[in-house]
């Protein structure tokens, strides 16, 4: 699977993120001959444990938070992330039905990442917004960069860095006040290998969901 880098829009001091930012990003991609190829969506969900008896407290060794991910590109899979336990789990989408039956964790909130994808030579770009489900409250703007020919994280590192720098020049030329920044991926903490997979992608989106929710609180 090709390596993907997930970036988020960091506005310059004094400016804010708005829906217009996404429109400008898409115009920027089209300005360098990016071809729109379709829509995409990622759903990230946050769950908290259900206790039978509130006065008893939870068992010490059980996860306090369960995060879930689904990708429109792989509807047959569902991903779970336990941040406290540093674990990424890949399961068949049926696992969601099992979790509903078990009634162990309650869904607290969902964030949708959604937008359009573009082909640009060997790169595939996905530009989109992060919104809270039901409220349409904008949490951020994201850009996923995928280098199609290579699956090794190590081999693509320099190349993707160069792409991000080139991309910043495009953004600056469009007079957009801000820059796209990657969140430092912590793959080794989760024992994820060098060969890139959907599990790596799931971790990146979860990190970004947590970042957006945290940024809003501050």
């Amino acid at each position: 699977m090709p390596v993907k880098w997930l970036l988020y829009w960091q506005p310059s001091t004094g400016s804010t993120v708005s829906s217009q930012t996404l429109v400008d990003v898409m115009k920027s991609i089209e300005s360098i001959n990016g071809v729109r190829t379709g829509r995409w969506q990622v759903t990230a969900s946050n769950h908290r444990p259900i206790q039978r008896d509130q006065s008893m407290g939870l068992p010490q060794d059980c996860a306090r938070e369960l995060l879930g991910l689904t990708f429109s590109e792989v509807p047959s899979k569902h991903y779970f992330i336990l941040r406290g336990e540093h674990m990424v789990v890949e399961a068949h989408a049926n696992m969601q039905n099992i979790m509903e039956k078990l009634q162990l964790y309650r869904n607290r909130l969902n964030i949708f990442f959604e937008g359009f994808q573009y082909q640009l030579g060997d790169f595939q770009l996905k530009a989109g917004r992060a919104v809270l489900a039901h409220s349409e409250n904008l949490r951020g703007i994201v850009l996923e960069v995928e280098y199609v020919p290579v699956s090794s994280l190590e081999q693509t590192r320099l190349l993707l860095q160069e792409f991000v720098e080139m991309w910043q020049e495009v953004v600056t030329a469009q007079n957009m006040a801000g820059r796209f920044t990657p969140l430092e991926p912590n793959y080794s903490d989760y024992n994820l290998p060098d060969q890139y997979s959907w599990q790596h992608t799931a971790l990146q989106y979860v990190n970004l969901m947590v970042y957006f929710l945290h940024a809003q609180r501050n």
């Binding site: 444990p49 939870l58 068992p59 060794d61 059980c62 996860a63 369960l66 779970f80 336990l82 336990e85 674990m87 789990v89 890949e90 399961a91 068949h92 989408a93 049926n94 696992m95 039905n97 099992i98 039956k101 162990l104 964790y105 599990q199």
Partner: peptide
């Protein structure tokens, strides 16, 4: 009956869920 394939850390995952 519900069945779902899961990655090889499934047992550790279910332990973590209590």
């Amino acid at each position: 009956i519900f069945e779902a394939d899961i990655s090889n850390n499934g047992l550790r995952f279910l332990y973590a869920l209590g």
